[in-house]
Design a protein around this nucleic acid. Sequence first.
DNA 1: CCAACCTTCACGAACGATCGTTAAGTTAGA
DNA 2: TCTAACTTAACGATCGTTCGTGAAGGTTGG
Lengths: 204, 204
Amino acid sequence: MRPAGQTALLEAARQEFAERGFGSASIRNIAARAGMSLSAMYHYYSGKQELLHALLDEGMDRYFASVAAELDAVGGHDAAPAERLGAVVAATTRFRAEHAARSNILLLEERSLEAERLERYGRRQAEATNLFRDPIEAGIASGEFHTPYPDEARRGVIAMCNAVAQWYRPDGPLTLGSLVDRHVELALTLVEYRPQRSFAARGR
Amino acid sequence: MRPAGQTALLEAARQEFAERGFGSASIRNIAARAGMSLSAMYHYYSGKQELLHALLDEGMDRYFASVAAELDAVGGHDAAPAERLGAVVAATTRFRAEHAARSNILLLEERSLEAERLERYGRRQAEATNLFRDPIEAGIASGEFHTPYPDEARRGVIAMCNAVAQWYRPDGPLTLGSLVDRHVELALTLVEYRPQRSFAARGR
DNA sequence: CCAACCTTCACGAACGATCGTTAAGTTAGA
DNA sequence: TCTAACTTAACGATCGTTCGTGAAGGTTGG
């Protein structure tokens, strides 16, 4: 279990970074939001950079956990490519919507990382990309996905999911459940998913 | 014609903002990059905020000009919806790739704008969204686009195009021309474009 | 049992550096 | 002589970081 002070600090830093961006964020404000003095913050984190690093790490952990849970729910690596891609798209869309601040930091503040820490983060980002790449390539190989451009389709799907963090508002007209369903459908449309051995139209 | 000093300043500010973000950018660095003193900068722009504002305005002007030119090339508002959407996607993809720094500032630094200037920028952003919305709705109305989710498809197409500014490198394996073509195809796939009165397959 | 000690957690004060901005003055061309 | 273009110098504020201090609480040695 993480100490309460540390959790409060991460939450405060998340808000501050999400609102103003890393460069404009003040660690004095972060400490104040967390209800402690500036120096107390240095007891938990050795500086502004490490605060960002911890935030990105924690965000990545949560994201991978979300996707893994959704993947397990459809049967893990043994599921059909369309099921797996759908699970990844659903988990990603939901994560971007439910953790907008977290996601925006993950997506926008990469450039604020120092060189050494950026290297590690880049590796995790590549893993995240593979979450989409694997089922798409499997679908191409099995003949269920017909897109001639798997790489660009993958990037398109990822971009569509990621953008959710920037525009979706829970109090808007669109239910999160509906959005997730639509994104799954759109992703399957983009990779030109057509079930084999059947001429029946896919359900709407 | 803009004074040379002003142009150099905008270029320097663009680089600095793109590399470090607005918050971390230093106007001293910007002035130095432009080859002038800090105070000389104040002769042209009244401060950091106005520098960002000018940059966003100039970027938007260029973007709209690019799209307008591409739209004109296919026949303007009289062209078929698929042609129009293709033109907008092509122009946007090309713009994001050829003006990556410009685009990233347009896409990421909105939050650094003060309230008053943000209002004006929001209006221009809405106009940009309409560039995609109009042909998509026209395609739905004419029966050539069959997507059940025009709004989410539109957001997906826009996100796909915008993401180009973050990943595309001109020295990479993919030609810009190829990327543009593929994005146009993917966009038409996403809105489920099927030409009317013909069973012939669309060209690949 | 108790005194000495260490670690954890927190504080206020101050460091030097850099920030955005302004003032006052100089130069060069119309 | 007027003005645009540009200079150096300095302003106060805020930045991230460091230092020294000390209260609280558990552990250890005699």
